[in-house]
Design a protein around this nucleic acid. Structure first.
Lengths: 188, 188
DNA sequence: TCCGTAGTTGACCGGTCAGTCAAGCGCAGG
DNA sequence: CCTGCGCTTGACTGACCGGTCAACTACGGA
């Protein structure tokens, strides 16, 4: 059925977040999804393929959230980040990191296929951020492309540091908001 | 001898950077350091203890680099990052990430002891950044503490994204430099 | 010279892991 | 009713892994 494959992807997404990619074995994944090994390999030729499916699942959810916030200007970006991370925080009781950032950090050096897969997500994000930056009323001399890259990096960096410090989603959003404010013409 | 323990730590540092913490087994570590299992356990009760030693090694090197750049103002921070990452890039042929950021992303959720160990490093960095921010000639209304946190996040975020994109150390430094410039009163 | 100790070695164990396989199930279509 | 197929099952394997251990060596001090 469709439901088994779905259960695998969903519980994998959860385990990758609460633990990490490498620390979770296929045996663990099967147990969490209440599926036997054979079924797993029926759907996914390898763990890496599962990871791709997990990435795509998260990417779809993020895109949706992005769509909603799109017309509300640059500051809505910080709000969207706060919303997503706040949801994770409530669900898992702590900051567990960015689904893409976690995988990027862990797998960029070991699995080139997964690396490019994650990189594609970041590229799409940056393009959307760039569009938002171009529409915004930026300070004189601010390059929209550079700012988009800085915002993306700021989000990832803040999330990473919040994760290692057991900080809250609010602190993440505050950092991102500060970066954006500093580059907008009109001060709030 | 002291040399065996040292070989273990050094080759572990290399393997953790070029691969990742979890993906490297104790057997791999022993092989890379040309040491037998028993010797390994003679020096380190567990892999996590080795990780601590690796963190301390990197932290000592970074502190030294920080000391040299300390009096040269905020912009020297970007230069220091560029130098360190450039060295890694040359040594390994690619951006391999920040030694602390990598471990933070991978282990924060799975090993609380290591998490606090890495967090302590970040805390010390942020304090030093804060001191540099307080001495700098900041734009009106810029909170030094907030800026210090933003710079730290920017560094980590830029490194992470450069890693997943196979970008260069220069791009990392450019992002950090842009963030700092945007908050300084005098424009270069 | 003898002893203690730090360091080293290689064999070894129990467990776990990714991945395979043959067989079975239930359903849909003919 | 039969057949084919998507999906499931559980047993199986061979490799590997973390960790232990007893024995050995080299050396520094008494």
């Amino acid at each position: 059925m469709v439901v088994s494959r779905d259960r695998i992807v969903r519980s994998a997404a959860k385990l990758f977040l609460t633990r990490s990619y490498t620390s979770v074995g296929i045996t663990d994944l099967c147990a969490a999804a209440d599926v036997r090994k054979g079924s797993f390999y029926h759907f996914f030729p390898s763990k890496a393929d599962l990871a791709k499916a997990v990435i795509d699942l998260h990417a779809a959810q993020f895109d949706q959230r992005f769509d909603e916030a799109e017309d509300q200007g640059l500051h809505a970006v910080a709000g969207a980040v706060a919303h997503v991370q706040g949801a994770f925080e409530e669900r898992f009781g702590r900051i567990v990191g960015c689904p893409f950032g976690n995988l990027a950090a862990e797998l960029s050096t070991t699995d080139d296929d997964l690396r490019t897969h994650v990189a594609a997500v970041f590229d799409r994000w940056e393009k959307r951020l760039l569009a938002a930056c171009e529409q915004a009323d930026l300070r004189a001399g601010v390059d929209p492309a550079r700012l988009a890259g800085m915002i993306l990096a700021q989000i990832q960096g803040q999330i990473l540091i919040a994760k290692v410090r057991l900080a809250s989603a609010d602190e993440i959003a505050a950092g991102v908001r500060a970066l954006i404010s500093a580059h907008l013409r009109e001060q709030a």
